[in-house]
Design a protein around this nucleic acid. Structure first.
Length: 683
RNA sequence: GCGCCUGUAGCUCAGUCAGGAUAGAGCGUCGCACUCCGGAUGCGAAGGCCGCAGGUUCGACUCCUGCCAGGCGCACCA
């Protein structure tokens, strides 16, 4: 079904040709700021007037005269306003009818839809496996997971990767802590009680602090790092246990928010399975990779970036890929991973199951042994990584582009976002010590190294507790189990919404009070609106003995747009005279009454759903969905007070309001599901 | 120093990419609301030289230039 906007734009385009003889591209269509300016506004005459040296207003008169002589689908009348806008006013009955039809249709389609087309890999989370996840990591995972949901909604096959950096100094530091500070071996570390990631959080901070002054410990760190890289010895054993246990904790934390992964890629495997050496062979053949014989980087293999667009202003643009001691850098390993991800290297991995979730989803991990699986080899992909890694990621993207036989530069995207920081006030209330320098700042960056941050599980625990209190107050009849289950859903909503409501270039200065608020622009507000729609429908079923689906079918059971009888599924059922089929004229007349402008505004809002999803995907901006969902919920809550459904006696009013409430619930639920926010039965 | 990002109401943010009609939300403050489909709600009020200065334009929060302020990045760390 063609969008009405396109139809209107095409009509104006045709009018321009007819009136002026000028051919123009499809004109821009805007949403007018106020209802009296109609439903769509086209500023074409403004632009054209300047180009032709004619008064825009006069030009607009001629265009409108032309348009008024003809039928444009869905348009009831044209007007001119302001400096020369063309304002189109829809046939409100027709548009609502059309909206309902497409909703019912998309509902039945989505049930049978299977993903088609080239595969896309989305990599997110990728937390260093040496400590508990904090709320900054949560922003990454929630953004990444929402992106995955958006793409899947659009029918794109998505594979979710979580890159595990298990060879770096971060892991070495914690291993050092266990081995030297605590004197534990692998078995003892394996036997430690949970929360293991919390223990590592503290240990990591302690080791970092001691390393500053303890020369002997610093020397030991180099030994541990070497042992980890070789993969042999007791320290390597401890390292394996630490990584495995921490990842299980990370996945458990993310599972609380409904976030799952298809594949964990271990960085250690990239070396041990010779993925790096294969990548290196390919890279060496490139004009961009060379061996440095002299200078600061003597003995290193370098990537040549001087003269490459985007790197030209750097003092030393070239980047080390292989250190003079022969070890590959992080960027080098990341490049190898990306080349494999996009099918430019043969697959060296086998795969084992890492975990199976409650709903049966399997998370696999790379390794030397196991099964063959069709992972990697994607056509396109995105890596969700915070903006501080922009420089490194641009190198990775550059390498992907030069290794692509087709020379594509757009197949890999760095989905960048700003960090989550703490307001000094929140840090203080959480008992986190700050330097006097920090206290003067607008916000304080979280740091695993300094142990400075709010752990993800702590936030979720506090949210669940708070939600539990509220639920208990409102629903004293619920059992403990029911109350907890509800509190979990509300906590998910609060956390996820809070992390996506800001656009990704905004530094979130985390404020605990704000995050714990369940009123206003929050996840629970969305849930509340959805729950209210459901409870209206439930009450209707009790009073009238009719499901909302049957009720909607009844109201729609006359003819569809264009006069013919619409989709066969639509037929009336017995609703005991509480509802009746409504004609297009009845719906239109009702919606055109001024007191029903708010209903009409909601109908228009509902019609924007697909465009909003497109915009969110194109701009990689999840906040667009969050704002849209909030607007829907807000519209509904306003309507709820002004336009009762069950208590309305007029059956025309009742019917139209029911249609809108039904459409709203559907769209709101869809938007919430894109954000990973559950819709409770009650709350 | 160079590069990137940000600056909008007391606070936290939309709107800037595609210039246009009276710049919008939430929180906070003050006041109010249904014997009614749920008050995690709704309604109203107060609160804005859209960082500053130029420029382009019929028209600038939006584009361009300069400046000011804040953040981040520019490792043989990841």
């Amino acid at each position: 079904m063609t969008d009405l906007r396109e139809i209107v734009a095409a009509a104006v385009q045709e009018a321009v040709v007819a009136v002026t003889g000028e051919s123009i591209p499809l004109p821009q269509v805007e949403d007018p700021p106020r209802p009296e300016f109609g439903d769509l506004a086209i500023p074409a005459a403004l632009e054209l007037g300047r180009k032709l040296g004619r008064p825009p207003r006069q030009l607009a008169e001629e265009l409108v005269a032309y348009l008024r002589d003809r039928e444009t689908e869905g348009v009831r009348r044209w007007e001119i306003a302001g400096p020369g806008y063309l304002n189109a006013f829809f046939d409100r009955g027709y548009v609502l009818r059309r909206l309902m039809d497409s909703l019912l249709q998309s509902q039945s389609e989505s049930e049978s839809a299977t993903a088609m087309g080239p595969k896309v890999v989305v990599e997110h989370t990728s937390i260093n496996p040496n400590k508990a996840a904090h709320i900054g990591h949560l922003r990454n995972s929630v953004l990444g997971d929402s992106l995955v949901r958006l793409l899947r909604h659009q029918g794109v096959p998505v594979e979710v990767h979580n890159y595990i950096d298990d060879t770096g100094v971060q892991v070495a530091d914690v291993v050092l802590g266990f081995a030297d500070l605590m004197g534990l071996d692998a078995e003892a570390v394996r036997a430690m009680p949970d929360p293991f990631d919390y223990a590592c959080w503290d240990l990591y901070t302690e080791v970092t602090a001691r390393l500053k002054s303890d020369e002997r410990l610093a020397a030991r760190r180099r030994e541990v790092l070497l042992a980890l890289e070789r993969g042999t010895g007791t320290e390597a054993e401890v390292g394996t246990v630490v990584v495995e246990r921490i990842i299980r904790r990370h996945l458990a934390t993310m599972a609380r928010l409904g976030i799952e992964y298809d594949l964990l890629v271990h960085e250690a495997d990239i070396i041990s399975m010779d993925l790096w050496s294969a990548a290196f062979e390919r890279l060496k053949a490139s004009e961009y990779v060379y061996f440095a014989d002299e200078g600061d980087h003597a003995g290193c293999w370098m990537m040549r970036l001087s003269g490459v667009a985007g790197f030209e202003d750097l003092e030393q643009p070239d980047k080390v890929l292989v250190r003079s001691n022969g070890a590959a850098t992080y960027v080098a390993k990341d490049i190898a991973y990306h080349m494999w991800r996009y099918g430019e290297l043969e697959n060296p991995f086998s795969y084992r199951e890492f975990d199976v979730s409650a709903d049966g989803h399997v998370t696999w991990q790379s390794g030397a042994e196991g099964e063959q699986m069709p992972f990697g080899g994607a056509d396109r992909g995105a890596s969700v990584i915070d903006v501080r890694q922009e420089y490194l990621q641009s190198i990775v993207a550059f390498a992907v582009a030069i290794m692509d036989p087709d020379g594509r530069t757009d197949r890999h995207t760095h989905f960048d976002y700003e960090m989550v920081a703490l307001t000094p006030k929140t840090a203080k209330t959480l008992g986190i010590p700050l330097t006097s320098e920090d206290q003067g700042r607008p916000f304080v960056e979280m740091s695993g190294r300094r142990g400075l941050g709010v752990k993800a599980d702590d936030l979720l625990n506090v949210l669940e507790e708070r939600a539990g209190e509220e639920v208990g107050k409102r629903n004293p009849d619920l059992s403990d189990g029911e109350r907890k289950a509800l509190a979990v859903q509300i906590a998910i909503a609060a956390a996820r919404y809070f992390l996506v409501k800001f656009n990704r270039k905004t530094v979130i200065a985390f404020d605990l009070d704000e995050a714990l608020n369940f009123e206003g622009e929050t996840g629970p507000y969305l849930q509340y609106a959805a729950v209210r729609t459901s409870s209206i429908f439930e009450l209707m079923r009790q009073r009238w003995g009719v499901s909302v689906e049957d009720a909607v079918r009844t109201v729609l059971s006359t003819q569809g747009p264009g006069g013919e009888s619409s989709s066969g599924a639509v037929s009336a059922v017995d609703v005991k005279g509480e509802l009746e089929p409504l004609s297009l004229d009845q719906i239109r007349d009702l919606l055109e009454e001024e007191e029903n402008d708010m209903l009409w505004v909601l109908a228009l809002q509902l019609g924007r759903f697909d465009r909003v999803v497109d915009l969110a995907v194109q701009s990689s901006e999840v906040s667009v969905i969050a704002k849209y969902a909030f607007t829907l919920a807000q519209d509904f809550n306003r309507l709820y007070h002004r336009y009762p459904i069950l208590q309305e006696d007029d059956r025309t009013k009742r019917g139209v309001r029911l249609l809108l409430a039904y459409a709203l619930r559907l769209r709101l639920q869809q938007a919430m599901s894109l954000l990973g926010i559950p819709v409770p039965e009650r709350m």
